[in-house]
Amino acid sequence: MAQITTSTRTLYRRPKLVPTLRKIALYILVAGVSALTIFPIYWMLVSTFQPSKFTLHYPPPLFPQEITFNQFAELFANHPIALWIRNSFLIATMSMLLCTSLTVLGAYALSSLRWKGRSMFGLFLLVTQMLPEILIVIPLYVIYRRLNVLDNLPALSVVDAAFALPVCIWILKGVFDTVPTEVLDAAVVDGCTEIGVLWRIVLPVSAPGLVAVAVVSFFSAWNEFLFAVIMLSSAKFQPASVGLTTLKATGFTPVEQYMAAGLIFSILPVLFYLIMQRYIVTGLTAGAVKG
């Protein structure tokens, strides 16, 4: 009995100090890692909203000394950023519509239908998903040149859709997989066709998955740089991803406008990617890992 009391006492006493220290260490570590991770983004915000008389100074102050909002108006006045965003928006919308409609077909074929070519089809998607874009850009440039579709927004969006398609199919397949088979069976028994099952049952309950696919296909075209810089050469078709890089080249763009442009470009993709991250991670690992 006495033995038991001593051991309970030591068990009770020791944890008091150690876990507190551990807890503090944990919080310090978490705070340090988080600060280090988001510092570049913090610095982007500081450099956007602080007048450049503070930023263009060494060493720069680590906390903003003054806040200004003039940079946005100046940015739109000095650079064709509205045109860039319009172009990006057009490319991304076309790519999204094309990619999302093809994705629905592919995901349904992969998820709930049994057929001989199914695993071959999955393998085919996987291989196309893994190929570096640079391998396609040279021959495609030659082909597009021959077809006379360089400097053509729809022609570019078609390429962007091709690269987003495999990831999108994996995302939507994962969502389609969660629809209970019994429900699909019951519908078929009740006289619904397979296409009817897709249209009336699978699609309506997979709305979040469809949103995720739309987000991925829209913003992968929005963010895309390599094909855009090669396929579009005239200024009036320049999308924002390419336009932003010319700001640096001109060299006369004040820092707060330069950073404001980056911020405007990033805000939508960051927001939507964070909201949809669970689905997107599943798609990027080709469904191998559930996010």
């Binding site: 890692v33 988001i38 983004i41 963010n223 740089f225 890089t245 820092v255 990033s266 990617y273 964070l274």
Partner: peptide, 21 residues
């Protein structure tokens, strides 16, 4: 959620930030 921020950022603005830093 904060930790996921770098992943959500497009590459072009990421480069802009680091060129400046």
């Amino acid at each position: 959620a904060m930790l996921m921020l770098p992943w959500a950022f497009p590459e072009v603005p990421v480069v802009m930030i680091f060129v400046w830093i």
